[in-house]
Nucleic acid binder design. Structure first.
Lengths: 198, 198
DNA sequence: TCAATAGTGTCTGTTAGACATTATGGA
DNA sequence: TCCATAATGTCTAACAGACACTATTGA
């Protein structure tokens, strides 16, 4: 997660933020601009997380609209002392409202991951199935079962093999695939009762 | 869905809306107040849908934060000519941004339905399993399989039978149940690839 | 040959949907 | 008695996870 040092106390961090430009800049355009400025690149995926307000407002603004933007690893630019990437599990102390935004952003991305080609946007055009699985594991924060992952991928007809292979050090080379969805959404069975009791 | 007639053209409809009160009223508090005013009762469930902005702004405001509030059927108050409930499938023409809010509100409620006791909040303390299933079907807009519904409910340990039965016209009386969750969330298996291709 | 990784086949337990059957009241 | 609805048992297909096995490369 990309944070920047606060102006006041250099030991505290905040989310990159800004107010919309005058002249009716849309929320999405603002978020695009903020992401490009902070990360040095346009995000490969951008989605709104929600609007946040509370009595305590760290900046002078009453209302914050949070966006989650995703950028492939290794795309990092210079990263002066002002900006730094943190693993989701090691985010330093930020204001409570921002902490909430970060948590909800992660949940939002994770719940969309099964319904939108987020992971594919973060990979090169061709990739190995192991790379794809590792991307899902990184975003979900948990290990996945290899055979099940590939079976589900197969059933969804999301990727097509190319005729290229890639040798990665020791073992057998992996075939390269490209994102090439074929089927429309299958019949979604199942109503789950999977409650967080409130 | 609860709409009210516009001031200008009495044939057009809008979502009930307002701006937050001065003095730092939170978004949720504003939404509560708007819902109570429009529907005559506090909503049994209220959740934020998201923030919406676009170049075209029907009112003078640049930014709208939409909330979905749920109220049991038959709770309707007087309903003068200013306000009216519409089935989700028969919502009249509203401004494009509001149409988007309504659609996203419905999707938001439906996707939360499996993870939060929304349906139970809309039912009396005791209810029959058929009533519960019909509530789910109403909110999801589709029929559910009776045996599977009950099996899943059983597995989730969400309801407890009471010693009361209710005779509803012709057939065998139905046992009454109450919401009384026991288990915490089970192991969620499965990563689905269920894409809307973008 | 060995180590390491890719890729696949098989088995098993779980579950969703279809279908049928029993249970129990009112007309 | 007949009909309508509740409630449940059984069967089957789909599927997830575990495990093992084969395949193919570099060291």
């Amino acid at each position: 997660m990309l944070l920047e040092r606060t102006e006041e106390a250099k030991e505290r961090w905040t989310l990159p933020w800004d107010t919309p430009k005058a002249g009716g800049e849309s929320l999405t355009d603002s978020a695009q601009r903020i992401a490009r400025t902070a990360a040095g690149h346009a995000p490969r995926w951008l989605e709104q997380v929600g609007a946040f307000s509370s009595t305590r407002h760290p900046s002078e603004s009453q209302l914050s609209v949070a966006f989650a933007g995703l950028i492939p690893g290794g795309t990092s630019t210079h990263m002066g002392g002002e900006l730094a990437w943190f693993p989701a599990a090691e985010v330093p102390l930020v204001a409570p409202r921002q902490r909430e935004m970060l948590e909800q952003a992660l949940r939002s991305v994770q719940s969309l991951l099964g319904h939108a080609p987020i992971a594919f946007r973060l990979l090169p055009v061709t990739f190995t199935l192991t790379e794809l699985q590792q991307m899902y594991e990184l975003l979900l924060g948990k290990q996945l079962h290899k055979a099940s992952f590939r079976r589900a991928l197969q059933a969804a007809s999301l990727v097509q093999p190319t005729d290229e292979w890639r040798s990665e050090g020791r073992g057998r080379p992996a075939q390269l695939y490209r994102y090439s969805p074929r089927k429309r959404r299958s019949v979604r069975r199942t109503l789950r009762f999977d409650f967080v009791h409130i």
